[in-house]
Amino acid sequence: MSLNLSGVYSPIFLKTRRTFLKSTFCTTALIVLPKSELFGAVPILETIALVQEDLLPSIRKLDINSSSYLSLILHHSRVADDEKEFLRNGVQWLNEEAVLHYKHPYIKLSSSQRQNILQIISKQRWGDNWIYTMLTYIVEATLSDPIYGANRDGAGLKWLEHIPGLPQPKEPYL
């Protein structure tokens, strides 16, 4: 069901409920899954960059620097530690799934194999949440004010014919 809280009802509330589901999951999942050797071996940002293109191919055409935006998020003072850990752990679990099915980490797979893996993880609760979270940050990068450096020349905003609100920020909030 889609909620469209927008005017008087606080939009913060809408976000809360969704994040709320994720957090419930997060705490249990972290305990259940063991650490993997793979984590050290696979370059996390390279995997993230590829997953991001697989999730929203438009970012390549629009030249959105979505992976550097995600590293900004992974160091952001206002992003909860749990969320950062979940993003990182997700990369590990994604690779575990890739190795389980194709004996190679995600970045070594073909495009259709990667889509298969995404399909497989999306059927699991953590995977559904992780993809959702990744998508959220990809969209943030794509539609952020150009001042953040990810959405160069506002290409993402032009893609959606969006007129930014005025005044625009003079500096990024980190």
Binding site: R78, L143, S144, D145, I147, Y148, P167, P169, Y173
Partner: peptide, 13 residues
């Protein structure tokens, strides 16, 4: 004040 959605609505400045 500005209209930075990331700062205001997502990072809840």
């Amino acid at each position: 004040f500005n209209k930075d959605e990331l700062a205001v609505c997502r990072r809840e400045i």
